[in-house]
Simulated scan of single mutants.
Amino acid sequence: MIVWQLTLSEFMAGLGQGEGYAKINPFDDLMAGLTAPGWVVGTETIIEEDPEFATALANQAEPTPANQVLLHKEGDGWKPVGAYIDDKIAIIDAFRGRDPKLSTDLILRCAENRPVPESRDMTIPGFKAFLRAHFAAVERAIGAGLDVPKNVCEDYGF
Rank of each mutant, 00 (worst) to 15 (best):
K23V: 14
I24F: 09
N25P: 12
P26M: 15
P26S: 12
F27L: 06
F27Q: 05
F27E: 10
F27R: 02
D29L: 13
D29K: 15
D29Y: 14
M31E: 03
A32Q: 11
A32R: 14
A32E: 14
A32M: 11
G33A: 15
T35H: 14
A36P: 15
A36K: 13
P37V: 07
P37E: 05
G38M: 02
G38K: 03
W39D: 00
V40A: 10
V40H: 03
V41T: 12
G42Y: 11
G42S: 11
E44R: 03
I47F: 08
E48W: 14
E49P: 02
E49K: 12
P51W: 01
P51I: 11
P51Y: 06
E52R: 09
E52H: 13
E52V: 10
E52W: 02
E52S: 14
F53G: 04
F53C: 00
A54R: 01
T55I: 15
T55S: 12
A56N: 11
L57S: 05
A58G: 08
A58D: 08
A58S: 05
A58N: 08
Q60M: 14
Q60V: 13
A61F: 11
T64E: 15
P65K: 03
A66T: 04
A66I: 04
A66D: 05
A66S: 13
N67V: 09
Q68P: 03
Q68E: 15
V69N: 04
V69C: 12
V69D: 01
L70Q: 02
L71E: 01
L71G: 00
L71C: 06
H72Q: 09
H72P: 07
H72V: 15
H72E: 13
K73N: 04
K73R: 15
K73H: 04
K73C: 06
E74H: 00
G75E: 06
D76L: 06
D76H: 09
D76I: 07
G77W: 13
G77D: 08
W78N: 06
K79W: 08
